[in-house]
């Protein structure tokens, strides 16, 4: 012990965001692992079908949408079987909406820990998103099953774009979520508005319908970063359309800005959070 160089901690009033924060998150990576592990464990404890819930939810939504929108309303699906079409969209949508709502509650939901122990608070939203990512991966299994069922051959080359799409979704949901989490500390209105807002957002994101349906107004949809992600996912995996790299680029820039704003507000709130709850 004596030979070990002592760590020195200095506590001062002002704390601005720095690269040191990222290094600190790396130091606390084990805690990140444990928080994720806890969330996954707790989520499916005392449930009869356990992790199958991750599949069940998008699967049932897919069936309802396929019957009402695909069969009865005959919503076009760019030549792909409607269930596969809508499920691809739903996968990303659920990842996005789940991560957004989990992240927005991250400060309040963990206040008993936050007011008692120090750790980099950004770990909490990160673990919330990773938990959602696990659900995403589990639910992907169902997409593969669907493809077998419909004898549909996906474009395997399209899989390479997947990390980029996940990154954009990640930045969009965490960026927005951190911003909301900060507001949520002071104004609990967020808790009531958010579910409604997410529901509304579903209709202006081309999950149920193809983006092409909007015709010349499709640029309005493009403001929403999830439009770019879902369009590109379908383009890449299902080959419905060429990937619009410009749109993706704009989305990436937009969500990076969103993420910066989110982190800024979060860091600002985090400083006095323990004093006001």
């Amino acid at each position: 012990m004596a030979t070990q160089k002592a760590e020195i901690t200095v506590i001062r009033p002002k704390k601005t965001f720095s690269l040191g924060d990222l290094r600190e998150i790396w130091q606390y990576k084990e805690l990140l692992y444990f928080f994720t592990w806890r969330d996954l464990k707790v989520r499916y404890k005392q449930t009869a079908i356990g992790v199958a819930w991750a599949i069940f939810q998008p699967f049932m939504t897919m069936i309802v949408f396929s019957v009402f929108f695909g069969r009865l309303l005959k919503v076009p699906s760019d030549g792909v079987p409607y269930p596969i079409f809508v499920y691809t969209g739903l996968l990303f949508w659920q990842f996005f909406s789940g991560a957004l709502s989990e992240t927005s509650n991250v400060l309040l939901g963990n206040q008993s820990i936050i007011t008692k122990v120090y750790f980099p608070r950004l770990i909490l939203p990160l673990s919330a998103v990773i938990t959602q990512l696990v659900d995403f991966l589990v639910a992907t299994a169902m997409l593969i099953a669907l493809m077998f069922y419909y004898h549909y051959t996906p474009h395997l080359a399209g899989l390479f774009i997947l990390p980029l799409l996940l990154l954009i979704t990640f930045l969009a949901s965490v960026g927005g979520g951190l911003f909301l989490a900060s507001i949520n500390v002071k104004y609990r209105d967020v808790r009531y508005i958010l579910p409604y807002f997410i529901q509304l957002l579903l209709y202006i994101t081309p999950v149920i319908y193809p983006a092409s349906i909007a015709g010349k107004y499709s640029w309005i949809l493009a403001i929403n970063p999830m439009t770019g992600v879902i369009k590109a996912a379908r383009g890449a995996i299902l080959g419905t359309e060429p990937i619009n790299w410009l749109l993706l680029g704009i989305s990436l820039v937009a969500v990076s800005v969103l993420m910066t704003i989110g982190v800024y507000f979060f860091k600002k709130t985090e400083r006095y959070f323990a004093d006001i709850v």
């Binding site: 002592a6 760590e7 323990a274």
Partner: peptide
Amino acid sequence: SKITPPTEGEVVLR
């Protein structure tokens, strides 16, 4: 324990 920051002053923990 770094839960809340001070308004003024400094702490050094070695």
